[in-house]
Amino acid sequence: MSFISSPVDWTTWTPVIPATLMFIVKDGRILLIEKKRGLGAGKINGPGGKIDAGETPLESVMRETQEELCVLPINPRKLGELWFSMGDIPDILCHVYRADDFTGTPTETEEAVPLWYSLQSIPYQRMWEDDIHWLPLLLEDKTFLGKFVFEGDSMQWSHVETGVAW
């Protein structure tokens, strides 16, 4: 979709909501969640959420993963950023992390149902439309910056850069 010019001037774009996502990849599988409430309820994604005041992105992603799945990622590393111009909700800057191990037992909570998928059967059709553009990069352990324009649940424009230094 990035062959048309962006409807957003990314040089002056200012996110309103700082957020995080965590993807735990282990033994050829990925730990995802089915969101039970909030933005993206009913969709499949990684655990994550808004960064609280005074929190770093890493502190936030650890807290959110613990709250949503009752597990703690081991040695998480930031692989990407997602910039979302959302149209009907405030713009979001999402820090994306990957971990290859965790402690605890994935457990259903009020916010999420844990779901394991093989890396060959990720349910992109139940995820946000942008995920197929950058999640394969995370699975390849590549860094990325994704910029996306949405109207509701519909992606209108996208651009993904790889090899970004964090």
Results as ranks from 00 to 15, higher is better:
residue 50 K to C: 03
residue 163 G to E: 14
residue 37 R to H: 04
residue 2 S to I: 13
residue 28 G to T: 11
residue 120 Q to V: 08
residue 118 S to A: 02
residue 46 G to Y: 10
residue 148 F to H: 06
residue 98 R to L: 00
residue 1 M to C: 08
residue 158 S to F: 13
residue 102 F to W: 05
residue 64 E to R: 15
residue 108 E to N: 03
residue 48 G to C: 08
residue 95 H to Y: 02
residue 139 L to Y: 10
residue 36 K to P: 11
residue 97 Y to S: 02
residue 80 G to R: 11
residue 70 C to S: 09
residue 138 L to P: 15
residue 155 M to F: 10
residue 94 C to D: 02
residue 16 V to P: 00
residue 16 V to T: 15
residue 130 D to E: 10
residue 55 E to T: 10
residue 74 I to T: 10
residue 99 A to Y: 00
residue 38 G to H: 10
residue 53 A to H: 07
residue 98 R to E: 00
residue 91 D to V: 14
residue 67 E to D: 12
residue 145 L to Q: 11
residue 11 T to D: 14
residue 102 F to S: 04
residue 63 R to M: 04
residue 144 F to E: 10
residue 63 R to V: 07
residue 156 Q to Y: 03
residue 139 L to M: 15
residue 116 W to N: 06
residue 110 E to T: 13
residue 129 E to A: 06
residue 47 P to D: 09
residue 101 D to F: 04
residue 125 Q to M: 00
residue 61 V to K: 11
residue 64 E to Q: 09
residue 81 E to R: 08
residue 71 V to T: 15
residue 53 A to D: 15
residue 31 L to C: 09
residue 130 D to G: 04
residue 158 S to H: 14
residue 66 Q to F: 02
residue 82 L to M: 05
residue 42 G to L: 08
residue 160 V to F: 09
residue 87 G to F: 01
residue 109 T to S: 07
residue 105 T to I: 11
residue 74 I to M: 05
residue 22 M to W: 00
residue 16 V to S: 12
residue 161 E to T: 15
residue 53 A to G: 07
residue 80 G to P: 12
residue 115 L to A: 09
residue 48 G to N: 15
residue 26 K to A: 08
residue 112 A to D: 15
residue 130 D to C: 01
residue 21 L to W: 03
residue 84 F to H: 12
residue 16 V to K: 05
residue 3 F to A: 09
residue 36 K to D: 07
residue 144 F to N: 13
residue 38 G to T: 14
residue 32 L to F: 03
residue 26 K to G: 07
residue 12 T to Q: 06
residue 18 P to R: 03
residue 117 Y to Q: 06
residue 78 K to S: 04
residue 107 T to W: 01
residue 87 G to S: 12
residue 51 I to S: 11
residue 82 L to C: 15
residue 3 F to S: 06
residue 44 I to Y: 12
residue 28 G to V: 11
residue 99 A to K: 05
residue 14 T to R: 05
residue 156 Q to M: 06
residue 158 S to N: 14
residue 129 E to F: 02
residue 138 L to E: 11
residue 115 L to K: 13
residue 101 D to H: 01
residue 140 E to Y: 09
residue 108 E to L: 01
residue 153 D to L: 02
residue 72 L to A: 06
residue 120 Q to A: 03
residue 117 Y to K: 04
residue 5 S to C: 13
residue 107 T to C: 05
residue 161 E to Q: 13
residue 149 V to G: 02
residue 126 R to Q: 00
residue 60 S to T: 06
residue 123 P to A: 00
